[in-house]
Amino acid sequence: MMFVLIQRFCRHALFSLYENTWVVIVISIAMLYAGGWISMSAFNETDIIDNYTWWFSVTITTVGYGDYAPGSYGGRFTAGVIMFFGIGIIGLVVGKLAETIIEIANRKVKGFSHMNYENHTVIMGYRTGSTEKMITELLADNPEQKIVLCSLTQESNPMVKQKVDFIRGELASTDVLTRSNAAKARNIIIHGKDDDQTFFTAYALREINRQAHMVCCLMDEDHADKIKNLPADDPSLNQIVLPANIYLMAQELQDRESCSVVQNLISNLTGQNMYRLDIPKQEDFSVSYKSLFFALKEKYGVTVIAVKDKELEINPPLDMTIKPGMAVFYAGPERLSFIELDAIQ
């Protein structure tokens, strides 16, 4: 019985020491420092006392430059004690530092860290396979953008190799919204396990961020108005994506290979892709759709397929006037980084 009690006491003491390792290290160094100084003073080691802090540092770390060395037997014994305990203390320091670094790295992988990004992309929800493909598309268009993936179902970051940051927790919770810095995000994608989770997450996000472009994946088209009516600086910032494969299957049966056309346009990895061009409001610009269509085709090799004023118009009439503040959607091999609008008029 006594042995069991002693064993429990030792375990408890060791655990307490482990939990307070840094305190133990500081106290041990302080005691060695004070004890060594008193001992060296007692043995009249004048050179060491005059340079004690330096001598103590090189002795406890067992570096031992030898520029100051005790001459008395008592001084040498004291130096030996400091070196002996120094080996253990330095080992503890190195081990604790390594443990701290590993713990910090694990916290990031496990999704418990805090992001300080701004103008980044936040993805709420994870679905094996589809989320990876979506992130691959995003990085293909802009490899430098910062992406933060939030999920409750994943215990660790599923996309470490892609350098995507990870936050673990309930999507609509204040904790996740804060740690992902969603209030400063430029783009938000919500891919909840069902439409209820998607809507509640979108609602929580719009309470803290009305400037971001938010895209929500819904299973039921009847829920689309709930997302579109959420408060935003511009109604067009609230967008929904439906399970398009159902519509594409019907379209494919009616018009063979139409699926290939649509899938090519929405992929950033291969073929001709679709991009958006916003005409700045401050530009002195006015041109017909016909002139814009042929000018962009001849000068840049892209095809205008839609125009957005108050409403989106696919294949608009040739005499439609394109003005500042409107958006133009075009198909091309890559995004145009610069367009000379003056040369088009």
Rank of each mutant, 00 (worst) to 15 (best):
A79P: 01
T53E: 10
Y65N: 07
F84I: 03
F77M: 05
D50F: 14
W54M: 10
I48F: 07
R76V: 04
S72P: 04
Y65Q: 06
I87T: 10
G71A: 15
G75W: 04
L92W: 03
T61K: 05
Y52F: 15
V81Y: 00
S41P: 04
T78N: 13
G74V: 04
I82T: 02
S39C: 11
A42K: 10
Y73C: 11
V81W: 00
S57D: 14
I90R: 02
S41G: 11
N44F: 10
Y65A: 08
G88T: 00
T46G: 05
N51Q: 12
F85C: 09
V81S: 01
W37V: 10
M40E: 05
V93S: 07
T61Y: 07
I82K: 00
G36N: 07
G66L: 04
M83G: 11
G88Q: 08
Y65G: 07
F77Y: 07
G75L: 09
I60T: 02
S41W: 13
Y52W: 15
G71V: 14
F43G: 10
G64I: 13
T59V: 12
F56A: 05
I90V: 10
I90N: 05
G36Y: 07
W55G: 06
F85K: 03
F56W: 06
M83F: 06
T62L: 13
I87G: 09
S57H: 13
G88R: 02
M40T: 08
W37C: 08
Y68M: 06
T59D: 02
D67N: 14
N44M: 12
Y73F: 14
D67L: 14
T59R: 05
V58F: 08
N51S: 13
G66I: 03
Y52K: 12
G74E: 14
I60G: 02
G75A: 09
G91K: 06
T46F: 06
A42L: 14
V58A: 05
F56G: 04
G74L: 12
I87P: 02
F56E: 02
I49C: 13
F77H: 12
G86F: 01
F85R: 02
A69Q: 13
F84A: 15
F77N: 00
G36S: 05
M83W: 11
T53Q: 13
V93G: 02
T78P: 00
A79M: 11
G86K: 02
S57C: 09
G75K: 11
I89G: 01
F84W: 12
G36R: 07
T61R: 06
A79C: 06
G71R: 12
A79I: 02
A42D: 12
I89N: 01
S72Y: 10
M40H: 11
A79K: 08
A79T: 09
Y65P: 01
V58L: 06
T46I: 09
I82V: 05
V63T: 08
R76D: 04
I82W: 01
P70T: 09
G91P: 01
